[in-house]
């Protein structure tokens, strides 16, 4: 069986030409091959959302996605693009300001999912925020601060004229 296959992945706007094994998930390749450990693994079965990344702007669980299948797509992670991403940074500032980060393990997934939510709905209602986060578990905060952080990020970004 041919093991290593060449793939070209675009992550945060940067192209990586690498050789991977076809049975590796996108999560494994991001963390282990590319050394981008911001994206976390917890359940490994689509339940918790810590492994969330964006593929072509849409939130997906990278633990349930083969890396070979992410070729030709735009992958965005919590690390963000080298030139910076004001929206991603504002969301993180709001999470810190509102006490939405305790142990922090769920935070990268929450932040990335929020990035996608706010690009679709600039000022989501509380219901829309909670609906967008059903696939994310947080064992620490009780979610209230997370909802507040997202509302704060949305209003800060709206006042700055968005991204």
């Amino acid at each position: 069986m041919n093991d290593l296959i060449p793939v070209s992945l675009r992550v945060n706007g940067v192209r990586y030409d690498i050789a991977i094994r076809p049975w590796r998930t996108l999560l494994e390749v991001l963390r282990e091959t590319l050394g981008m450990t911001g994206t976390k693994r917890s359940c490994g079965e689509g339940q918790c959302g810590t492994c969330t990344v964006l593929i072509d702007g849409k939130a997906v669980n990278s633990c349930l996605y083969l890396a070979v299948e992410a070729q030709g797509k735009e992958i965005s992670t919590i690390e963000g693009p080298p030139e910076g991403d004001p929206a991603l940074e504002q969301i993180q500032r709001s999470f810190v300001a509102k006490g939405a980060v305790q142990c922090g393990f769920c935070t990268p997934g929450m932040v990335v999912a929020t990035r996608s939510l706010l690009s679709e709905i600039a000022e989501p209602s509380e219901d829309e925020i909670r609906e967008a986060l059903v696939g994310h578990l947080c064992r620490c905060t009780g979610y209230v601060q997370i909802v507040e952080a997202i509302q704060d990020a949305a209003s800060q970004l709206a006042h700055k004229g968005g991204d």
């Binding site: 669980n61 999912a113 967008a132 059903v134 696939g135 994310h136």
Partner: peptide, 9 residues
Amino acid sequence: IGGNELRNV
């Protein structure tokens, strides 16, 4: 069915 992350794929 599921959340956004699931329904997107």
